[in-house]
Design a protein around this nucleic acid. Sequence first.
RNA 1: GUGAGCGUAGUUCAGUUGGUUAGAACAUCAGAUUGUGGCUCUGAGGGUCGGGGGUUCGAAUCCCCUCGCUCACCCCA
Length: 416
Amino acid sequence: MNFRKPKGTKDILPKDIHKWHYVESVIREVTALFNFSEVRTPTFEYTELFNRGVGSETDIVGKEMYTFLDKSGDSITLRPEGTAPVMRAFLENSMLSDSPLHKLYYFTNMFRYERPQAGRYREHTQFGGEILGSDSFYTDVELILLAKEVYNRCGISNFKVKINSIGKPDERSAYIAKLKDYLKDNLNDLSEDSKRRFETNALRILDSKNPGDRSITDSAPKILDHLGAESKARFDKVINELTKLSVNIEVDFRLVRGLDYYTDTTFEFVSEDLGSQDALGGGGRYDGLIAQLGGKSCPGVGFGSGIERILIVAEKNGFTFGEAAKPLVYFISLNDAARDKAFELIAQLRRKNIPCETDLLNRSFKAQMRDANKLGVKYVYILGEDEIKKGIGQLKNMSDSSQTEVEFNKLAESLA
RNA sequence: GUGAGCGUAGUUCAGUUGGUUAGAACAUCAGAUUGUGGCUCUGAGGGUCGGGGGUUCGAAUCCCCUCGCUCACCCCA
């Protein structure tokens, strides 16, 4: 065993691929129901896009990006997240001049250099949605409903939506000042990580998992009490609407999220069936991002959701993802002439969309039967010396073992 | 980047206080008299015991180093 896959990557093998197909088809179905259009952007972008769009102080940009110089010396980065590339495409293609509102989704792989653990990979897959052009609170709600519908159709109902508002930038910086003022007195009792965060990003101290940090922040000032009237009213509308629609929400003052571009609403879908990385997906508003990337001011909201994590939770729930595709008929040939005829008949059936298989290893009758049984085909069509002579094959039903003679040219209709 | 746990056939695991050719189950393949699957029975193939070094007459077993995997921190999907 000389070659190994790179750390944090995975092979998706044939026995599991139907699960991926299933989830992907659910996503295509649900996004169509919500009238979202797919956008596909390059696997890599110029590094500067993420520095500017995601924020150079974030962990994603600061230490998790796959960045390299290409042969011309340009700095290239494998996309670590979905929103910045979509915004870039949105601006570069002047989409706003086609229409004042865009509802976009993506389904693609992401790359982050991290230590792998349960539900966390260096290459993972996300689907995400973005609504651009409207600051209506209904857009926040619509995205949450979109994700919820996808989860539900994948057999996942045991999750909750943590939700919070981090307000407008000026409200947030005023709040951070108050928070730091409160934490100043407890600075020595905070964890090392949080002491560092106190300088770099004090808001992040709120979502520390350290029990000591949490007991200190339990009684810290809450951002929801420091929002302006407009932000507060907006947040209340989102909460009311979600409650009215029976979404299982939980207001969580600790939910600040790690990306710099968020404003107002932030949310996260969490499941107890995941390990320590308990988020199925997350997102929020980013009303300032487009302007920050050089466009004219345009409101936006988006979320991303991990496909691998959907799969983990769905499987823990015993969800079956439908059935793996399998052939309807297995052709068994007992000599070379039969084999030749089988190939001809198979070609005809496949043209009529009937999935067929046959033995390609020149195996014995018994071995071919075993193979057919293992594949789980419904029928076996047996061709031997007599059958070739008469133009009639033996069609055997594998579930009840009944067997009837079917002429070569009647085979397609008896399988229909 | 930090910490902990674990590495024996394809898979899940046994392997006695260090002692001969390292085992089982499942999986794979092949047989069980004429051209018929599942169940059963029989047999076969498959292992640098993660790798390297050391201790010893002798190491899967003890020691050191190293690599890999897993989980957790960090962070996030």
